[in-house]
Computed example of a mutant assay.
Amino acid sequence: MAVKQLNVEVAFALPHKQRIVALTVPEGTTARQAVSLADLPSLFQEVPSDTFTQAPLGIFGKAIRHPEKEALREGDRVEVYRPLQIDPKAARLERAKRQAKGQ
């Protein structure tokens, strides 16, 4: 019996560059395996390759707790999340300080 194939996508974005890689993978492929199959390091050579092996992942905007165990379904889009450049709380504090000075 043939293994069922699934059509999925893997997405990654930088502020200046975005890519969505369409893949056909065997049923049972995990989110982390799909990211590996997408070969993102070759598309984003400016990013350390371990980013893609260790980054948090999500499916359609919902974070995955265990991407090594999360089997994909037909049509899923795996999203690779990059680290935040600044803590959101610190960013809000800095904006509030700038606004207070401008008044």
Rank of each mutant, 00 (worst) to 15 (best):
Q103L: 14
A100G: 13
S49F: 01
P48E: 12
F52Y: 01
G75S: 10
L23H: 05
T24C: 12
H16A: 11
R77G: 04
T29C: 09
Q45H: 07
V25K: 02
Q5Y: 04
V10Y: 01
E70P: 07
Q33N: 09
K17G: 11
K4P: 05
L57W: 02
K101V: 15
T24K: 13
R92E: 13
G61A: 07
Q99M: 12
R92W: 04
Q103W: 15
L84E: 02
H16L: 11
P67T: 05
I86Y: 02
R82A: 06
V3S: 14
E70T: 12
G58Y: 02
A2W: 09
Q103K: 15
A90I: 15
D50V: 05
R77L: 03
P67G: 00
A96C: 08
P26H: 03
R73G: 12
N7T: 15
A63H: 12
Q85P: 08
V8E: 01
K62H: 10
S49H: 07
Q33H: 07
A22M: 05
T53C: 05
P67C: 03
A38Q: 04
L43P: 03
S49Q: 08
R65H: 06
P26Y: 06
G28R: 08
F60W: 14
R82I: 09
G28Y: 09
F12P: 03
A96K: 12
V3P: 06
G58L: 03
A71N: 11
V8G: 04
H66D: 13
P15V: 07
E70Y: 06
S49T: 11
G75F: 12
H16Y: 04
Q54V: 00
I59S: 01
E27P: 02
A34W: 05
D76I: 10
A22D: 12
A71K: 14
R19E: 14
P83N: 10
R92L: 11
G102N: 14
A38I: 06
A96H: 12
R32N: 08
A100F: 03
K62L: 08
V8K: 01
L84C: 00
A71D: 13
L93H: 05
A63T: 09
Q5T: 11
R95M: 14
L43A: 03
K97A: 15
V78P: 00
V47Y: 02
